[in-house]
């Protein structure tokens, strides 16, 4: 399915700069680096747990740049009052992981 990624280029740039500021190792951020950033959103931990489940597409306990963008996208939408989906809609899957 060739749908554009819902993360817009300008959002991706913002998320990428946050990603870089967190000190990725080998292009990945571990859970203990991402966790405080997500907790900072003040969203309930069960919501953040679901955000992580949906973002860590390869379930390696780390987020790469695209996975981190998915996490941030979901957090920002949740802060705007949109529910976090139970499974990742295809337009939210990064093009690099389809």
């Amino acid at each position: 399915i060739d749908t554009p990624w819902v993360v817009k280029p300008e959002e991706k740039m913002k998320f990428d700069s946050i990603f870089d500021s967190l000190g990725p190792v080998g292009g990945m951020l571990s859970g203990d680096k991402v966790k405080p950033v997500l907790l900072n959103s003040k969203l309930p931990v069960d919501i953040l747990g679901r955000v992580w489940e949906l973002s860590d597409l390869d379930r390696d306990g780390m987020l790469d740049k695209d996975e981190f963008s998915v996490a941030m996208y979901l957090v920002y939408r949740a802060l705007e009052g949109e529910p976090v989906p139970m499974s990742l809609p295809p337009p939210l899957v990064p093009p690099s992981k389809r």
């Binding site: 859970g31 203990d32 991402v34 966790k35 997500l38 931990v45 069960d46 953040l48 747990g49 992580w52 489940e53 860590d56 379930r59 390696d60 306990g61």
Partner: peptide, 13 residues
């Protein structure tokens, strides 16, 4: 799919 048992890779669980 949640892993059935075992260590979770989710730092929020």
């Amino acid at each position: 799919q949640y892993p059935a048992g075992g260590s979770s890779t989710n730092p929020f669980l």
